[in-house]
Design a protein around this nucleic acid. Sequence first.
DNA 1: TCGATGATTGAA
DNA 2: TCAATCATCGAG
Length: 201
Amino acid sequence: MNVETLAHPAEEVAPRLLGSVLTCKTSEGTVSIAITETEAYSGAADPASHAYRGRTPRNAVMFGPAGHLYVYRSHGLHWCANVVTGTDGVASAVLIRAGRVVEGEDLARERRGEKVETARLARGPGNFCQALGITAEHNGTDLLTGIPVVLSEGESVPPALIRVGPRVGVSKAHDWQHRFYLAGDPTVSAYRLSPRAKPSG
DNA sequence: TCGATGATTGAA
DNA sequence: TCAATCATCGAG
């Protein structure tokens, strides 16, 4: 993966990341996951973005150069991973929501639980990070240098398989068509709307 | 320092 | 439908 590919608005990069592979090496071993679902988040123009109210210590990575990893904790329990996109100084990132384990499945299952179905190993943002082994210590990692987390191009995805839909789980601007996923893929999180999401009427 | 909140998940 | 669980943020 090269920086030119990522140096564009999040909603432009998000669909292109489908099929790309994220690899994380730890002392336990290596896990690679092919991305099957993403969500685009902008900066000041996006009410649902962490960067909506400006730069803070937490979201600082989002304002940096493309190709870095932005990790944050959700609800005190889970980790969520984003790929920073756009130009240096402008906040934008793509949330990785789900993927398919292509390497290190045993390790991924060990982390997630032995009874977890293969298709569910990396389904959902929190589960994706758990399966891959991503935590706060990876925040700010340069995914293009490849240590210890790498973003690489996987098999090309037929454009016809790419679907667009409303974002999931956000209480603001949830109807933005900024969620991208592979049609018919069992690893995509068919998820519920946020309880706080307002009806569109 | 205090109180409200959340880009979630799993079980009932 | 609801609880688990805490870092972050904005206000004072």
